[in-house]
Write a protein that binds this DNA or RNA. Structure first.
Lengths: 334, 334
DNA sequence: AAAAAGACAGAAAACGTTTACGAAAATTTA
DNA sequence: TAAATTTTCGTAAACGTTTTCTGTCTTTTT
C-alpha cells in the first residue's frame, strides 16, 4: 500500500479532492465544519502533501540553491548554518552544493540547480575568472552573491567592506609600532582578495610604509596553504615584525610554520587574520583578526534573494556590511 | 517569454514531445539521426529538463535529505562535504537541515523532508531520547544514521567503534604512566556517548584504575561547554594527571580554561580528544586524539542508503568502522 | 414569498515530464 | 515480391496537486 494522497482522503471523506485541498490550504471558500472534519481525517490517515506535485502546479519549489567553494571551511559552514535556519523560518529549504574552487564545476552545479527549479541561488563564487559565465547564468534565475564584491557587474551581492577592514588592520599594526608589515596570501583571481590587499596598500600609502606582499597562487586559503607559504618564507631571514594574513585559516597555517621554526607569536612576530572564524580564538595564541558578520551576511543575502524572487524586475542591489577589529593576543606593541 | 519546455522544442523540431523526451533520455527506440537533430535544437533553444516534472512521474527526486545536529561543527561539516561530493557523483543532491540538537525540530524536519519526497534520509540523530519517534518515522522512508549506534533498534547505521576507540585512548594514557585519568563530557542521552564512556570504564576496569567522570548535561559538545566544564573543575585542586574528552571540541575548551588558569599542557596535564577534527592539530598544543574516518563514514552511509533505496525490502544493516589513535603532543609520559 | 446574494463544493484543466500502447514505415526474410 | 520483422515515432494516460469556472444550496433582502 502506497502513500496516502489527496484522492484517498477525498474518497474517505466523501468529497471531491478539490475540497480537501482547500481544507488544508486555509482557503476561505469552505465550511468550517467540513474543514475540521477533513483535517481530522487527514491526520488519521497520515496524509502529508506531496511537495513535488505542489511545486509542479505552483511553479515554485521553496528551495534555495546554495553554492559554496568548500562546505568544510569554518567561515562558510558558520554562514551555511545561519542561512539554513533563517531559510527554514522563511519556509525554504537549502540545497547545498560544493564548487570545490573549480569554475567549471561551479557552472555545472549552477545549471543543475536551475534544472531543479530552485526558486533562487545564493553563491560564494570561486573568483573573478568566472564572472563572465556567471553573468550569463544569472539571467536564468534570481541570484545573490555573498562575500565577493562583483564590482562592475550589476549583480546582487552582499559583502563586508574588505578594503576598509584590511586598512584598519594595517593601521592597527602601525599603531602598535610596526613599520615592516608583510601581507600574506594575496590572490589574483578574486575580487575579494584584490579589495583586501587594496586596503593594505591604501594604509601603507597613507602611513608612508613600504608594502610587502606574498601572493598565493592556490585558489584556496587553507591552513595548509598558509603553512606552506610561511614555511617557504621563513627559510631565509625576514625583516618584517608583523604578518597580516588574507584569512584566518592562512594565519593558523603561519602559526604552525612559526612554531616549527621556533618563532614565537607575538613575542618575535605579530600576526593578524581576517574572517574571525570560531577557531581563531584558541589559546595560547588567540588570533587578532577582522570580523565578518556572518549572521548579518546570511540574513541580508536571503532577504535580498527573497525580495528578488518576489519582484524579479527590481533593480540589482548591493549591501556592504562593516567589518570590525577583534583584538586578541597575537599582536604586540614594539 | 518563459522557460523552454519539451513541447516548445517538439514544435520547432516538428515531432511529438515524446520523441524529444526519448532523444534526451538515451532511449533506444529512436533514430540516430533524429536524435542528433533534436539534441542540437535543444542546445540551440537552451532547453533544460524540468526536474520537478520528471520527479512527478518517475516518483523519484534524486535528492537525499541530510539532518545534522549542527552544520558548523567541524566534524559534521567535513562529513557533509564528503557526502555532498560523493552524492553528486552518484547523481544525487543534498538537502541539508539543522536539528540544532532539538528532538522536536529533528522530528519536524524529518517529516518536512518526507513531504518533499526525498529519496532517502541520512541523519546524525540528536540522541537516544528520540529513538522512539525516529523508529516511527523511518518506516516512511529509507534512512541511515551516522555516528549514533542505534543498538537494539534494527535501523541502518554506520558508526565508528566508539567503545574500542575510547578504550584505546585510555590504555594509551595508561601506557604513558597515567593512573588518574579524568573523563570529561559524558552525556546521558546519547548512545554514542554512552559507548564512549563504556570504553573508558572497560579500560579502567581492566587496568585496575579508578574511573572519574564529569558529565555534560548540555546536548552539545562544543568548545564553550568544554571550557565551562573545565573552568568549574579547575576551581578546586584536582588529582588527575590526564583528561580524556568525549570530543575534540570539548578538549579545545579545556585548553582554553587550562590556559587561563596557568595550567600547562602537556607539562602539568595531559589531554586527549576524540574525532580528530581539522582544528585539533593546531600548535603549539596539537591534540592527541582518536580519529573518526569521516570520508569512509560518509561513503558507507551513502552506499548503504542507495542500496536500501534500490532494494527497500533488504534487511537492515550496520557498519562499524575502526577508529585509530592519532598521537600528537598533548600528552606526556610521567 | 419571490428574488437576489452569498456560501460552499464539484468538475476539469493545467503544470512538464515519462512511458505503455499502437500504428506506420523501413527493413529483412522467404 | 509478399510476408514477417524490426525500427521509429505519435497518442494518450499518468503522476498529485492548485485553481478557475460553474452550479447548487442557503441565507438574506425586499
Amino acid at each position: 500500500m502506497g502513500v496516502v494522497t489527496l484522492k484517498d482522503v477525498a474518497k474517505v471523506a466523501g468529497v471531491s479532492y478539490a475540497t480537501v485541498s482547500r481544507a488544508l490550504s486555509g482557503s476561505p471558500e469552505i465550511g468550517e465544519n467540513t474543514r475540521k472534519r477533513i483535517i481530522k481525517i487527514c491526520e488519521e490517515m497520515g496524509y502529508t502533501p506531496n511537495s513535488v506535485a505542489r511545486s509542479m502546479v505552483m511553479k515554485r519549489t521553496n528551495i534555495i540553491g546554495l553554492i559554496v567553494t568548500s562546505i568544510d571551511n569554518p567561515f562558510m559552514s558558520e554562514m551555511i548554518a545561519h542561512l539554513e535556519i533563517y531559510a527554514r523560518q522563511c519556509g525554504y529549504n537549502l540545497m547545498v552544493c560544493n564548487s570545490s574552487y573549480d569554475p567549471a564545476l561551479e557552472k555545472e552545479v549552477f545549471s543543475l540547480l536551475v534544472g531543479r527549479k530552485v526558486d533562487g541561488i545564493i553563491m560564494i563564487p570561486v573568483g573573478s575568472e568566472s564572472y563572465d559565465v556567471l553573468k550569463m547564468l544569472t539571467v536564468q534565475i534570481p541570484t545573490v552573491f555573498i562575500g565577493e564584491n562583483m564590482m562592475d557587474l550589476p549583480e546582487n551581492y552582499v559583502s563586508v567592506d574588505n578594503t576598509t577592514g584590511m586598512q584598519q588592520a594595517t593601521e592597527y599594526l602601525y599603531s602598535l609600532g610596526h613599520r615592516n608589515i608583510l601581507y600574506l596570501g594575496a590572490r589574483d583571481n578574486s575580487m575579494t582578495h584584490k579589495l583586501r590587499v587594496d586596503g593594505y596598500y591604501n594604509a601603507c600609502n597613507k602611513l608612508g610604509i613600504e608594502p610587502n606582499v606574498i601572493r598565493n597562487s592556490n585558489p584556496r586559503s587553507s591552513i595548509q596553504v598558509g603553512y606552506e607559504l610561511a614555511k617557504a618564507h621563513f627559510k631565509k631571514p625576514f625583516e618584517e615584525t608583523a604578518i597580516l594574513c588574507a584569512a584566518d585559516t592562512l594565519a593558523i597555517g603561519v602559526i604552525q610554520a612559526a612554531y616549527e621554526k621556533g618563532i614565537r607569536i607575538p613575542e618575535d612576530l605579530s600576526l593578524m587574520g581576517f574572517d574571525n572564524i570560531t577557531f581563531s580564538a584558541l589559546p595560547p595564541i588567540s588570533l587578532t583578526t577582522v570580523n565578518q558578520p556572518k549572521l548579518e551576511l546570511a540574513v541580508s543575502a536571503l532577504d535580498m534573494l527573497l525580495n528578488r524572487i518576489k519582484r524579479p524586475e527590481t533593480p540589482h542591489t548591493k549591501t556592504i556590511l562593516s567589518p570590525s577589529l577583534v583584538i586578541r593576543n597575537s599582536c604586540r606593541a614594539i
